[in-house]
Every structure is written in structure tokens, then in C-alpha cells.
Simulated assay, not measured.
Amino acid sequence: MTGVAGTAGRWQSLRERIPAPLADAGLVALAALDVWLNLWNETSQGLALAAVACAALVFRRRFPLTVLLLTLPVTLLEDVVVAPLAALFTLAVRSRDRRLLAFCVTLAAIATAVPSPLDVAGAYDRPWTLVYFGYPLATAAAPVLLGQLVQARRDLSRRLVEIEEAKDHERELHAQAVLARERAQLSREMHDVVSHQVSLIAIQAGALQVAAKDTGTVEAARTIRSLSVGTLDELRTMVSLLRASGGDATELTPQPTLADLHRLVETSGIPVELTGELPATVGTPAQRALYRTVQEALTNVRKHAPGAAARVELSHDTDEIGVTVTNAPPTRPSLPLPSARQGLVGLQERADMLHGTFEAGPAADGGYRVRMRLPARQN
């Protein structure tokens, strides 16, 4: 079988290198030579059938079944093999109907095995002809099997090309997914870290502008606050653009954990009460999510509730761990700092990735409450 497959592959390779018109001309010439060498019935009928069989080979690619049927009548009068076998091969290469191919093989074998001329064979020839039927049957089956192997090889080559294209597409999608994760991670870190610091600068500059008595100091504070507000606005635009191309992100760089929570509270610039604790077994992704929740909530308190105190409560039970950040109502008007609520969107995404819940909304006393709950079993 390996040898036959190799022959089919070499035959297909040879056919692909030879131009179709040249191949057709060569095949017609070969069929004509076969007829000339085996011509014994020189009647006009025999010559006409032979000419039709040879000429029909030119159209075998477009009408393979019709060409086969046109090559079979000459086998009843002449001992020719090239034209019908070539037609059988072409039909086998182009057809996937196994029943049709089996019928054509049988028909070609019968046409070859029938005693010729039909009106001369005697009764004593019939049993020999029946036994002899196995030889033309095998002869007719050979080009069909070879054609099917060529077809299978062509399908396999096409399938390999499709697989390579699918792999290339998959690699491209993977690269795009990695880029999207990096963009989403970058957008979240820009919001959580950079905007956190810039908003604090803006708030401190605003406070200095109000408290300073010196004209130069007031003007410098106003400039610092103006630049900080503009930077926050630019950051908001950049975060929106990055988030539009991002997806569910994975952490790509070392991130703060709950061990850094006390320092975050101490440097927040507002009165914060930290209560509760979490077990040491809390996983790193959950620690990062809870830390970012506290960071975002305290940043929002400074931006939107100046003068308000905040309370950070850590809690856990057998099923869940969580953090709740609640702030009182503001004691003075807030500064008009730009905001697109991207931080809350990022926290919701973190909660979704960890199969938890996130809530943010006004509290009953006029303040604001942010809460994240995560499954304890995933940590």
C-alpha cells in the first residue's frame, strides 16, 4: 500500500508539473498509438469509434463520466486499453461516489471481457470468457484505485494547508489575547496607582491654595492643582482607550497585598479606622483584589467626600472573605476632579474573575459604601 501511495504521489506531482494542454496532447497521441498497434478491425465503424475515444480524452477533466462512456464502445471492437483506463483514472480523481466508480469499473470490465466481434464468439468461448472476466476487472480497478489515492493525497494536502492556516490564526489570536491582557492590566494599574497619587497631589495642592497666605505660594499651588487635574483627565482618556482593547487580565508584575494595607491606610491623608483581619491562607489574587478595593475607595473619599472619615472592615467566615469601606458624608464641597468610574469598573472585573461579588452605592447616612466579597474556597 505504501508503494502504491508513493506511486500516486509521484503521478500527481508529475501531472502538476506538466501543462494541461501538453498533457492532453500527449495522452491523445498515446491512445492513438495504442489503437494503431492493436487495430485489427479496420472497418469504418471501428475507426470511427477509435477516433471518438481518442478525441474525447481532451474533455475528460470537464466531463469525466461522459468521456468514459465514449471510450467503452471501441473496446467491443478493438483490443485497446489506454483510452478507457485514462478515462477511468480521471473519473476516479474527480468523483467521490464509490457506487458510481464500482459500476464504471464493472462496466469497463464487461466491455473488455465480452468476446469480440460479438457475432463470432461460439458457445465454447462463454465459460472461458467468464473465467477471464477477473483479469479485465482487475485491470479496470487499478486506475480507479490510483485515482482515489491521488484524490486522497490532494485532500490531505489541502487539509494540511487548512491546519497550518488554522494554527497561524490561532497564534495570531493568542498574540492578540496576550496584548489585550497586557493592555487591560496596564489600564488598571495606571488607574489604581498613578491616578491614586496624582489625585492626592491635586487635593494637597488645593488645600495649600486655600490655606496659603503668600501670593506666590497660592499661584504655585494653583498651577500644581491645574496640572494635576489635567493629568488626571489625560489618564482617564488613556485608561478608557486601553480598557476598550483589553479583556480579563492576569497580573503580570508584582502587586501589593494585604501586608501593605496598613501603610495604605496610614498614607491615605484622611482619618481611617481599620478593623478586622483575614486568615493567612488568603490567596495572592484575592489579596490584590481586596487591596485595590480599599485603595480605590479611599481615593474616591478624598476626591468626592473631602473631610469625611472612613472605616475599613475586613471580614471572613467559612465560605467568604471580604472587605467593606464606608465613609461619612463630606464636610466641605469636593473639588471638580475628572472621573469616569473606571476604578469601580475595574473592581467589578476583579470580582468577576474571582467569582465574587462587588457592590458600590450610597449609604443610609449620606455617605458611601464599597464592598467586595470573594469565595474563601478559591483562596
Rank of each mutant, 00 (worst) to 15 (best):
V323L: 00
A249Q: 04
V80Q: 00
S228K: 01
T253L: 15
I201R: 08
R183S: 04
T250F: 09
L65R: 15
A310E: 03
A175P: 00
R288S: 13
S315W: 10
A29F: 13
G9K: 03
A53I: 05
T106Q: 06
V81R: 11
D79Y: 15
P117V: 03
A8G: 09
G361R: 12
L72W: 03
P127R: 12
H304W: 11
G366T: 06
T331I: 06
L146V: 01
A23T: 10
L137Y: 08
F63R: 15
E78L: 09
G6N: 12
A123H: 14
C54V: 11
A286C: 14
L232M: 02
R158N: 07
L107N: 05
I163V: 15
I203G: 05
L335Q: 10
Y135I: 12
V323F: 07
D319W: 04
E273P: 11
H262R: 15
S334W: 02
L30W: 08
P127D: 09
D260C: 08
V294H: 03
A184T: 01
L68I: 08
T215Q: 11
M372D: 01
V325P: 02
A142S: 05
G230D: 06
P338M: 11
N300G: 14
P279D: 14
T257G: 12
R94P: 04
L261M: 04
F63T: 13
L27D: 07
I224N: 01
A56P: 05
F103L: 10
M238G: 09
H196L: 10
A202M: 00
I321M: 02
S268V: 11
A175G: 05
W11D: 11
A166Y: 01
L264W: 09
I18L: 14
A259L: 13
A20C: 15
V239K: 00
G307R: 10
P329Q: 06
P271F: 12
R98T: 06
R292L: 14
L130V: 14
V80S: 03
V28S: 07
T215I: 09
A20L: 15
P329G: 03
R341K: 14
C54T: 02
